[in-house]
Design a protein around this nucleic acid. Structure first.
Lengths: 224, 224
DNA sequence: GCAATAGTGTCTGTTAGACAGTATGGC
DNA sequence: GCCATACTGTCTAACAGACACTATTGC
């Protein structure tokens, strides 16, 4: 066999966000061929001089307006021959999350439309993007147990009920309230802000992630 | 910025093997520029029509003779601009392991020489291969806790001392013998072959991994 | 006082980690 | 009987999971 002649490199992003009790993924409706008018992950070709993550962030911003995302990491590289009808296109997929309401998205550039879709009911997707999202979801759930990523999916200040809701939505299963609170508080990674949030029912204490919580501390296995 | 004009795609392999009480990595001495005569990971350009893993396996075999490796998975993609003086070269790194003595390596093709180096004392390496190996080692140690990979690094039939030795060598720390054996046996993933290995000292029972041990079973966290 | 949500405590079984001596075989 | 290695058991502390009621606020 011979070296590839039509090689191209893209960086794509699976961006998750919680909306009430639904886990959603940011998708764009493609403007151009191939798969014009179908939904797809934001992403695009890597430019000379930029890293893979820079390319992924840039494309995300150009296509959807989402910018400055703290949790952003490489996920997996999808490169099977035939995954793109245009030729040999390698996609370096990234995993990112934002807190609720954090990103006001607007279609730009190559995107005819932009929308958050529930991860559990996605439209038909271009390329192998359905596989990429499945993989991203698996990784997200897995990472949840190490207690870092979830704090990028809730507001900076949150109640324990918020936090539990986030866990339950992502994992797709209910957790026991008393055990959840015990473990979270014993993990010693939360600061009590002293404030409460009022609304319906009894006011709830507000917490934030301890700013000095070291990565290793945060990485304690919370839900084995 | 513009699309990349000099893009190339390589697949590289970090292959680990245990040799007595040392963890070793397979390296090749480069034959061609750039970095001619320096040591590097086996790997090379992906051909049209092959998957990334196929390319990695083919290059490994061409350069070193190592073939048919059961544990072989994608590790991470390294694509910073400037990591290769020839232009924009994206490396999809793979992680693989073999049991002791499993691979008789011989230099082929692009390799002037092939050798197993202790992971703890590597020679100066071409490209960013030192970073890739660090990352692979971190992942290997991490994966060890989930008890699948280690069984690809010991002979098909092994004693509990063999297994403990493998863990200790990879993790770089001693483990308590009684606790180790208790956990391994309680995990219910080992078959007693009924045979023993004699030699110096008291004969040791030989075990093998239970063939029906499901991935999920194997994936139980053994050493948190 | 009712609705709604926040918050709390105990028991039980399992597991992890610390720790030292006995058993078996070859010579 | 000596050397080398395999093998074994107990105690303690921490943790996970099951489980139901009380507390506080707004109305």
């Amino acid at each position: 066999m011979a070296r590839i002649t039509d090689l191209a490199l893209t960086a794509d992003v699976v961006l998750f966000r919680l909306a009430e009790d639904t886990l959603t993924v940011l998708l764009i409706q493609r403007h151009n061929e191939p798969f014009a008018a179908m939904w797809a992950l934001p992403g695009g070709f890597v430019d000379a001089g930029e890293t893979l993550e820079e390319a992924a962030r840039r494309e995300l911003t150009e296509e959807t307006g989402a910018a400055d995302i703290p949790f952003f990491e490489q996920l997996y590289t999808f490169g099977d021959p035939g995954r793109d009808p245009r030729g040999r296109v390698i996609s370096v997929a990234h995993l990112a999350v934002v807190p609720p309401g954090r990103v006001a998205v607007t279609a730009g550039d190559d995107a005819a439309d932009v929308s958050w879709y529930p991860a559990s009911s996605l439209p038909p997707l271009a390329f192998d993007h359905d596989i990429i999202i499945s993989y991203a979801l698996k990784r997200l759930r897995y990472k949840l147990e190490y207690a870092d990523v979830v704090f990028h999916m809730v507001p900076e200040v949150f109640t324990l009920s918020d936090l539990q809701q986030a866990y339950e939505t992502i994992l797709g299963e209910p957790l026991d309230k008393r055990n959840f609170r015990r473990k979270m508080l014993q993990a010693d990674i939360l600061d009590d802000t002293g404030d409460v949030r009022t609304g319906e029912g009894r006011p709830a204490k507000l917490y934030r992630l301890r700013p000095d919580a070291q990565p290793e501390v945060k990485a304690r296995r919370l839900f084995p």
